[in-house]
Design a protein around this nucleic acid. Structure first.
Lengths: 345, 345
DNA sequence: TTGAAAGCGTTACCAT
DNA sequence: ATGGTAACGCTTTCAA
């Protein structure tokens, strides 16, 4: 079992010093064209792969970024990861993937791991850390970009979906369609995005001169059953409810089923709007009106911002906010109320 | 801007040599308890994180594994990734994530990258490389575990879903329910899992004494439209078709829609069986009978096998084959044909 | 139990 | 344009 070939082997074989090999590999200018060709031929022939460990040790750069997500199996984050990986690969960076499984202590642990790995930067998605812990960590870590969370009064960069604007737009759409008793199925009380969506919902109502009605807002699990239960409850307590704005598409599907179970037609009696535009949204009956956010772009932009900040770009590019797009389908059609055909997916 | 603290700083501060610090960090035995405590206190106070780069350079181990998938945004692979990350984390390993975007040259590229990163092992999912290229690469790389692909006549380890057994089981289920003209919507012609599923389908038929009918097998895109188009075509050319066995759940949903469009009732006129049990499967109308495979376990087992092989375990554990489970829902009920309630998800 | 020195594989710096 | 030497930060080996 032979030793792995290193730069000295290449140098010997090519009859040059290892510095010259290094220059050839790194496209340095101080080397003659013919030497470079000869060296690279030997590199190729021996199948030499320079160790990024050794290189990183001396350059203090690893060309590696950390990606921290609560759960890569969640489509929301796997889309972000895909976008991040695309952008990272394009820039010549590798990605170290860490799941926090929604556990703050695990989050601290993976951040320490990434620090030990000497990643050049970190994309931190939906951090569950308390503001103080997060601030404390960030001070010691390499450049961090926050996704889906902003940290107030700091020089920290973040990339977000504009949940408030999205919810406001959706609520506005429902108002424009003549709905007045619009319920909000709010998702988990501790969710940042849920809070922002609640804000957008309330703002749209107040702008329309409709007084806030606490009975119409209900927290729920962010899954189908959560939506079903919350919607059933609301339909029985407040039979005047004529629309549901939902925390996400699964909750919305639950609301659809609750309407069916309660004998209320969608969209004739009750309109339903989801959030996220997951694949399912276009396939249920009736197809869901929902807010689509481009998670892949979000991930890619996060990496690009990270690389810019790492490169020391001027403060011009501090944060990025992506606008979600309202996808109008049959569960909450536009005012003229013509059912649109299902958008093929 | 202060320099990052290193082992010498800790040593100086603790009044010992850096070797002693190293011993304290690595739980070596040759160190007194009190010295260890004192050293670790300094480590904590200074927030020292040993560089895994430097450590890896000398130990020739990085505690890092490579995970290569075609597309992390595909739920199939993000589930595998989640399982892999769980198992890796449990064993103290980090995961380097690479997407190949179904491009063989990109696959070679990422394998080279992982080699340069000196990962200790690689999980390679659904490799698209030609047998010869793959064999050639494996020889140079660290230990590789293949997921969803086996390489014949080699000492290569793999972890797979038993697609053939799954398809055979599903076909058997349809036969048991009295179906005879069972069509197979085969997915992409080049798909390994598709070929294996075709094999299981044909085997079930031949065991039942039903002659192979090439007209009833049709390749299609692995998406909803692909299933829709293929099913429509089949329903018009072969109106006697009384069941669809589908490459995956999306294709099956397409088949459902095709049946609806052709005025055929499911399951009364035509039964439909999918593959994978994605979330959508239980939510469409009628809910899909499908084969569920535990992708998360698949990923975790791949990592565990990799770690065992890396540890030089005896050949006993060469390959792992996971059996999919038939989930019977309304689109292809059991013979007695009582519609089961939707399994809440 | 502890420490000094060598070395992992590369690039930076300074000569030539 | 090329090479020698030191350095990156750690662990291993050997000596004390």
């Amino acid at each position: 079992m032979s030793r792995r070939v290193n730069i000295a082997d290449v140098a010997r074989e090519a009859g040059v010093s290892s510095q010259t090999v290094s220059r050839a590999l790194n496209n340095k200018s101080e080397i003659s064209a013919e030497t470079r060709v000869r060296v690279l031929a030997v590199v190729e022939r021996l199948g030499f792969r320079p160790s990024t460990l050794a290189r990183g040790l001396v350059t203090q750069k690893t060309a590696t970024l950390g990606l921290v997500v609560p759960d890569i199996a969640n489509p929301f984050f796997s889309e972000i990861a895909r976008g991040a990986e695309d952008a990272a690969h394009e820039a010549g960076y590798s990605l170290l993937l860490c799941n926090t499984v929604e556990d703050p202590s695990r989050e601290i642990e993976v951040l320490h791991t990434l620090e030990a790995q000497r990643v050049d930067g970190i994309i931190l998605c939906s951090s569950r850390l308390a503001e103080e812990d997060l601030s404390a960590m960030m001070a010691k870590l390499p450049t961090v970009i926050l996704v889906n969370r902003v940290l107030s009064g700091d020089d920290l960069r973040s990339v977000c979906i504009d949940d408030e604007a999205g919810a406001r737009c959706a609520a506005q759409h429902l108002l424009d369609s003549g709905h007045r008793a619009i319920a909000f199925l709010a998702g988990p009380p501790a969710s940042y995005s849920g809070l922002n969506r609640a804000r957008g919902y309330q703002r749209a109502l107040s702008e329309a001169g409709i007084p806030a009605d606490p009975d119409l807002s209900l927290a729920c699990d962010p899954h189908l059953e959560g939506g079903y239960n919350a919607a059933r409850q609301l339909l029985s307590h407040r039979p005047d409810t004529d629309a549901f704005l939902c925390y996400n598409d699964l909750v919305a599907v639950g609301a659809l089923q609750a309407c069916a179970a309660a004998g209320r037609r969608v969209p004739e009696d009750v309109a339903v709007v989801g959030f996220d535009d997951i694949r399912l949204a276009g396939l249920v009956t009736p197809p869901l009106t929902t807010l689509r956010s481009d998670k892949r772009t979000l991930g890619a932009e996060a990496v690009r911002l990270l690389l810019r900040v790492m490169a020391g770009c001027p403060a011009s590019c501090e944060s990025i906010v992506l606008q979600p797009e309202l996808i109008v389908r049959a569960s909450a059609p536009a005012r003229t109320a013509v059912e649109k055909p299902v958008t093929a997916e």
